[in-house]
Structures are given as C-alpha cells and as structure tokens.
C-alpha cells in the first residue's frame, strides 16, 4: 500500500487490482482507493451523511463523464467506509507532457483539452478543479481525473469559473506559451459549444477576473 495523495478530506492509496479482486490471476493493473476520512469535529451522523453523499456524487460524475471523455474506470464504491476504488491511470501528467512536445503537437493537445471540456459542459458536468495536473496522457488519449470538487450543472457562472481556473493554471504553470495555449483551448471548446457560447464564457471569465477575489494558483498551492 502506497499513499499517493492526502487532501483535506480524502486519502489516496495505490493498490494492485489483483490483490483486491483476483489474487490468483497474474494481472498487472493498479488501482487508486480514494477514501474520505472521518472528521472528529463533526457530529457522527452529519459526518457520515456528508462523506457518503460526496462519495456518491464523485462516482456519478466520473461515471457520467465517461460518456463524453476519458475518465478512470470505477471498480467499487463503498458507502459505509466512503471510498471509491478506481483505475490508476498510468501515464504522464499533461503538466509535464506539454513541455516536452513540439508546437504542432502542443497545439493539438490544447485543442483537444478544450474539446473535452466543451463536451462536459454541454452535458451538464462541471469538473471543479481543472488543472493540467488533473489531466493524464496515456496511449494518445487524455484522461480527466479528480472530480472531487465537481458538480452537475449547466449554469454559465459555474462553467465560467471552471474555465477561469484552467486559465489560471495555464498562466502559472505554462506561462511561456500561455496566450497561445489558452487560445487553442478555447478554439477546441468552441468546436463543441459553438461561437456564441464561447463568447459568453470569455465574457464571464473577464467578469470573474474583475471581481478580483481569485488568487493565482501558483501562490495558492505549495507544490509538492
């Protein structure tokens, strides 16, 4: 058992698929167990209710999103212990991958990302934490992971915040090509949602930026 992540509400553990399900078979598949841990400060019943409903919501988002884009396969959802067992997408994070490829491929990847987000938004799914660390490149495909802050919604405000967060992620992590990259993301987005919707989203991003509350991500996160 290897702990690969620890957030405010969940612990991520890496395990072997065969150890969990088929001890006798020689399968080489890794899984992630995302477990929402008990919080001692909350009343027991409130705590269980929250962890349960969030586990359900995240599983549903990942599963629903799979109709439109690549997401990890879900193997198990446990509502007593509040964990999800899902496929460990073994590949390279877009964050690093993007910096290794030539400009033509880079352009295609950004377009593809925009395309995928467009499909999610069009179908009422908000990812909630769009960064290039939450996108994995494997076998010529991009996978979206971590829907922990996501929700089902078609509200323009939520879509705008989603795109705004991605923009900031590009600005802080991929600053050298930021303008170009984000433009390509928006081109890909437009291909799915249409020109009018794209303009609406761009306006909303500008409005969100004007509110000024939002902090650049690089100053928010302690990169580990």
């Amino acid at each position: 058992m290897v702990i690969i992540g620890r957030g405010a509400e969940a612990i991520l553990e890496m395990r072997e698929f065969k150890d969990l399900y088929f001890p006798s078979r020689d399968l080489n598949i890794k899984v992630v167990i995302k477990k929402r841990v008990k919080k001692g400060y909350r009343l027991g019943e409130m705590d269980l209710h929250l962890r349960r409903s969030r586990t359900v919501l995240e599983s549903r988002l990942i599963h629903e999103a799979k109709k439109y884009v690549r997401t990890p396969a879900i193997f198990e959802v446990d509502l007593d212990e509040c964990y999800i067992v899902m496929e460990y997408v073994e590949g390279e994070r877009i964050k690093e991958f993007l910096e290794k490829i030539d400009s033509e491929r880079r352009k295609n990847i950004c377009r593809k990302i925009g395309n995928m987000i467009g499909k999610l938004h069009k179908n009422g799914i908000i990812h909630g934490d769009l960064t290039t660390s939450n996108m994995i490149y494997r076998d010529n495909e991009i996978y979206f992971i971590d829907f922990g802050l996501g929700e089902f919604s078609k509200e323009i405000e939520k879509q705008g915040v989603d795109m705004h967060l991605l923009k900031e992620a590009f600005q802080s992590t991929h600053y050298e090509h930021f303008m170009e990259d984000f433009e390509n993301v928006m081109k890909g987005y437009e291909e799915v949602v249409g020109e009018e919707k794209k303009r609406e989203i761009l306006n909303r991003i500008r409005e969100i930026e004007r509110r000024g509350r939002y902090v650049r991500r690089d100053s928010l996160y302690n990169k580990q």
Partner: peptide, 15 residues
C-alpha cells in the same frame, strides 16, 4: 462545521 471544513481546506491548500 462548514467554516471549520473550509478552514481545513485552506490549511491543506496553502500548506
């Protein structure tokens, strides 16, 4: 509970 949870997220976020 909500403000304590949000505080915990902020702690995790900022390190």
């Amino acid at each position: 509970s909500t403000v304590v949870e949000a505080s915990e997220r902020a702690l995790a976020h900022t390190g």
